[in-house]
């Protein structure tokens, strides 16, 4: 097994006069795990479907391992996809679903059965071959769908929000399971998700998309600490935006928009050295498990921070954020260099 590299060159898609994707250029190295992350409607699923051959590009090229697949019908592309709804075939058993791609490739029956047993072992579902689909739980179906895609040993695996139909606990387990399976098999994987936490915990590379375009391609750490612009930052959980003042401990902070996450901000008695600090009055205090989420009014601006103790509305308080956790955005909303 193993994966191949995928490259998209100036890909554009138009559907019914609407430009869904424009100028998508992306290189996905062989064997990597890439997440397409973005709000709903940003075109990430369309991009995945374009790679699978379900959304014809109006411009540009798609290459797998050097050969262009842009003009091929879906069945010739060998890009195995796991659908959001799993799209398992209810008129076939678990084994029937897994064996069908092999049947299409005229693999003899004996060998098909061996391969199905092997993939069921890999997915930790031994002996499930004769089970009807209706008897499977959501997580088990998800694994069967994954197995059906992996059984043809494809060069590329495409995952369309594969975990979104599962409840939170199973989702967290399957995240690491999926990631370790991908590393074991070494398959080039592209996953679509709108869940930033999922993308951050699973991907080698995150492709952040917005309005049909790529905003940023970065590692999870880089994306989290250095989002390309203000709205990327907002999407990645930056919930405090304040105007920089002279004396703030950041270069070029004056006049810039400073962003940080509430989780990084603390209510302090005195400002620690080298921290961004704001005085204000408490507007709101809510218990947030292990601490209190405090909202301060700092003279026309609003700042959220965590506190160990509850504070009554109206009291004066000081919120402080370590300078390293603060991101400065310029007038054009782009991230300013450190």
């Amino acid at each position: 097994m193993g994966g191949e590299a995928l490259s998209l060159e100036r890909l554009a898609i138009r559907l019914g006069g609407v430009q869904i994707l424009r100028d998508i250029t992306l290189d996905v190295p062989a064997g990597s795990f890439t997440c397409l992350l973005g709000p709903s409607g940003c075109g990430k699923t369309t991009l995945l479907r374009a790679i699978a051959g379900f959304a014809p590009p109006s411009e540009g090229d798609i290459r797998i391992g050097g050969r262009s697949i842009a003009a091929l019908p879906p069945e010739k592309r060998e890009t195995a996809m796991v659908f959001q709804s799993y799209a398992l075939w209810p008129h076939m058993s678990v084994g029937g679903n897994l064996a069908y791609p092999l049947k299409l490739r005229r693999v003899p029956k004996r060998e098909r059965e061996e391969q199905v047993a092997r993939i069921l072992d890999l997915l930790d579902l031994p002996g499930f071959a004769d089970r009807p689909l209706a008897s499977l739980s959501g997580g088990q179906r998800q694994r069967v769908a994954l197995g059906r895609a992996l059984i043809i040993d494809p060069p590329i695996l495409l995952l369309d929000e594969p975990l979104s139909n599962l409840d939170a606990a199973i989702r967290r387990n399957l995240r690491s399971e999926l990631r370790s399976l991908q590393q074991k098999v070494g398959i080039t994987t592209i996953m679509v998700t709108h869940d930033q936490e999922e993308a951050l915990s699973m991907a080698d590379t995150i492709v952040l998309m917005r309005a049909g375009q790529i905003v940023q391609v970065a590692t999870p750490e880089e994306l989290f600490t250095r989002p390309a612009d203000l709205s990327a930052g907002r999407f990645l959980g930056i919930d405090n935006l304040i105007r920089g003042r002279a004396g703030d401990p950041l270069p070029g902070a004056e006049g810039a928009t400073l962003g940080f996450r509430s989780a990084e901000a603390r209510i302090a008695a005195a400002p620690p050295a080298g921290a961004l600090a704001r005085h204000g009055t408490v507007v709101d205090c809510a218990y947030a498990g292990g601490g209190y989420q405090i909202r301060l009014d700092t003279g026309g601006e609003s700042v959220s921070a965590l506190s160990d103790t509850a504070l009554a509305p109206g009291t004066a308080a000081l919120a402080a954020v370590p300078a390293a956790a603060v991101m400065a955005f310029g007038a054009d909303e782009a991230l300013l260099p450190h």
């Binding site: 879906p74 195995a80 059906r148």
Partner: peptide
Amino acid sequence: VDRAMEEAARNLGAG
């Protein structure tokens, strides 16, 4: 019939 089921078949190699 769920369209995704047909797409899944196409995706895995069926004309």
